Simulated scan of single mutants.
Amino acid sequence: MTDPLHTELLEIAQEAARRAGALLRDGRPADLAVAATKSSPIDVVTEMDIAAEKLITTLIADRRPDDGFLGEEGASGDGTSGVRWVIDPLDGTVNYLYGLPTWAVSIAAEQDGETVAGVVEIPMRGESYHAVRGGGAWATGAWEGTRALACRPAPPLDQALVSTGFNYVTEVRTRQAEVAARLVPLLRDIRRGGSAAVDLCDVAAGRLDGYYERGLHPWDLAAGDLIAREAGALTGGRPGERPSHALTIAATPGVFEPLQRLLEDFEAWR
């Protein structure tokens, strides 16, 4: 039986993600511009990132004033309830800036340091993904109703479709390109969508066999990692480690292990 608290957290996350997604989809200015930069001049923040995070944190704080926050655009606080919300109000900001459809709102709830509920809203696909720890992964979209998610049966690695992402720091992305070049001959192909949250959901939905990336932050992966795991995928980082800033991997069982070995051999974390 699902913990009633986890169900409550999921319902709040779904409402917040839905409202933020609608704001971002319907409120995008025609003259949208960069409001700030982060790790480099091409790692951007728009006014809509900031507005979406404010909407999310205000809604959650109204419902659960004792909870903590960790948000990409600055929301931070420990709270006193043991629950912390990990928020990426707009994952795929560069896609959004250019009018590309692959972007998402990602909201996860942690209890005592463990992710217990997660939602990824993908407005331009008309899709929403969610999971509660131990309750499976689910999606709503153009299909009727809500459907359970399951990752794909594992193909041989040379027939696996794998996605990745690139950092906005030039030295790091150059190294990432070198790793991708070594992987390409060993896989069916590599995709680069531009949103970690969407890629993790695509693993969960069976649209990808695997995904890896260096340089993710907790808000990039918290919700999507739970959704992928609840759909049957394996997730991790370097051997024996959890997903982290050094390396995040999510893949169907049978692809995860050989992909992780290759990434370790290629020092993808470096």
Rank of each mutant, 00 (worst) to 15 (best):
Trp85Thr: 09
Ile87Asn: 01
Asp88Leu: 03
Leu90Ala: 01
Asp91Cys: 09
Gly92Arg: 04
Gly92Ala: 08
Thr93His: 10
Asn95Asp: 11
Asn95His: 11
Leu97Phe: 12
Tyr98Phe: 11
Gly99Pro: 07
Gly99Glu: 10
Leu100Val: 10
Pro101Val: 03
Trp103Leu: 07
Ala104Tyr: 02
Val105Lys: 02
Val105Ser: 01
Val105Asp: 00
Val105Glu: 01
Ser106Thr: 04
Ser106Ile: 02
Ser106Gly: 05
Ser106Val: 02
Ile107Arg: 03
Ile107Trp: 05
Ile107Ala: 05
Ala109Lys: 05
Gln111Trp: 09
Asp112Cys: 10
Gly113Met: 09
Glu114Pro: 03
Gly118Val: 03
Gly118Cys: 04
Gly118Glu: 03
Val119His: 00
Val120Ala: 02
Val120Phe: 01
Val120Tyr: 02
Ile122Gly: 00
Pro123Arg: 02
Met124Thr: 07
Arg125Cys: 06
Glu127Gln: 13
Glu127Ile: 04
Ser128Val: 12
Ser128Trp: 00
Tyr129Ala: 00
Tyr129Val: 00
His130Ile: 00
Ala131Pro: 06
Val132Lys: 01
Arg133Gln: 12
Arg133Met: 07
Arg133Phe: 04
Arg133His: 08
Gly134Glu: 09
Gly135Cys: 12
Gly135Tyr: 05
Thr140Val: 12
Gly141Lys: 06
Gly141Phe: 05
Gly145Ala: 11
Gly145Met: 12
Thr146Gln: 13
Arg147Glu: 14
Arg147Ser: 12
Ala148Asp: 04
Leu149Phe: 05
Leu149Val: 05
Ala150Leu: 09
Cys151Leu: 03
Arg152Cys: 10
Ala154Tyr: 06
Ala154Glu: 08
Pro155Ile: 05
Pro155Ala: 06
Pro156Thr: 14
Pro156Tyr: 10
Gln159Ser: 15
Gln159Ile: 06
Ala160Gln: 13
Ala160Met: 14
Leu161Glu: 08
Leu161Ile: 14
Val162Leu: 06
Ser163Asp: 13
Thr164Ala: 08
Gly165Tyr: 07
Phe166Leu: 15
Val169Asp: 09
Thr170Pro: 15
Val172Pro: 10
Arg173Asn: 14
Thr174Met: 11
Thr174Leu: 13
Arg175Cys: 07
Gln176Tyr: 12
Gln176Asn: 13
Gln176Lys: 13
Ala177Trp: 13
Val179Gln: 11
Ala181Glu: 15
Val184Arg: 15
Val184Ala: 15
Leu187Pro: 05
Arg188Gln: 15
Asp189Ile: 04
Asp189Leu: 09
Ile190Phe: 08
Ile190Glu: 09
Arg191Cys: 09
Gly193Glu: 08
Gly194Asn: 08
Gly194Lys: 06
Val198Glu: 10
Val198Tyr: 12
Asp199Phe: 03
Asp199Ser: 13
Leu200Pro: 01
Asp202Gln: 14
Val203Arg: 01
Ala204Gln: 03
Ala204His: 02
Ala205Gln: 04
Ala205Tyr: 04
Arg207Leu: 13
Leu208Phe: 00
Leu208Lys: 01
Leu208Trp: 00
